[in-house]
């Protein structure tokens, strides 16, 4: 997947790390020379210095046809312009926009931004943590948000670890599309056993996403007691 990270400072650094860890191709654009230098030296990525709402900047940075464009500027207006340009003129498949003002979340979506993350909301809930941001980025809403693909890694504490899929009471509202184990894709069927470190790709209707996350991350003992 080709991912563009436009603007941002510490969030950009986090996003860069988390995507690189998963082997994605990264294009990093930042209008501040200082931040660009910092990202380039501490995160070992080439950084294009330029303003991502200018056409020539996106052109030279090589944004064309990217799968994902993440705009992290502190200015909502700059993020909107960058996303619009990436989507309309550079055929970027999906744009994610950080907004400062919670009132703008729905408005930005209405104006064509695929996913909107509100920093105030995130801070208020102190969930700028790795897990949440990762979940937000990975569980991208698809088809006008009617369904979502959730990526989740099985851990040893999960109730579903070391179980056969047919024995885990997998919810009927979701479907495992693929399992990735040691970089090999496994097509799931009932007799496949899930092991820790397996990566699951699960499709579900958006309204069931939270329920699904709860199911996947249910812990061993707790799960046995509540079931």
């Amino acid at each position: 997947m080709k991912v563009v990270v436009a603007e941002g400072t510490s969030q950009a650094a986090y996003v860069i790390d988390s995507f690189r860890e998963h082997g994605h191709e990264l294009v990093v654009i930042n209008s501040s020379h200082e931040t660009a230098q910092d990202l380039a030296t501490t995160h070992h990525v080439p950084v294009y210095v330029g303003r991502p709402w200018r056409r020539f900047a996106l052109e030279e940075a090589g944004v064309k046809g990217a799968d994902l464009f993440i705009a992290l500027s502190p200015s909502d207006m700059d993020n909107f312009a960058s996303c619009l340009m990436a989507k309309n003129l550079f055929s970027v498949k999906k744009v994610i926009c950080l907004v400062d003002n919670p009132a703008k979340v729905d408005l930005f979506k209405k104006l064509g931004i695929d996913s909107v993350i509100c920093s105030t909301y995130l801070l208020a809930n102190s969930i700028l943590s790795e897990a949440t941001l990762r979940k937000m980025i990975k569980s991208l809403a698809m088809e006008d948000e009617s369904f979502a693909m959730v990526e989740s890694t099985v851990s040893a504490e999960d109730r579903i670890a070391n179980m056969k899929i047919m024995d885990m009471n997998f919810p009927s509202y979701a479907s495992i599309a693929a399992i990735v184990r040691n970089h090999q894709m496994i097509v799931p069927n009932g007799s496949v056993i899930l092991y820790p470190e397996d990566k699951l790709y699960v499709v579900a209707a958006s309204e069931n996403e939270e329920k699904l996350m709860a199911f996947l991350k249910e812990e061993k003992d707790h799960g046995e007691a509540t079931r």
Partner: peptide, 12 residues
């Protein structure tokens, strides 16, 4: 004086 503000408002 800000193109991005003008752009956003045109859409709104």
């Amino acid at each position: 004086g800000n193109d991005n503000v003008n752009l956003f408002l045109a859409h709104v």
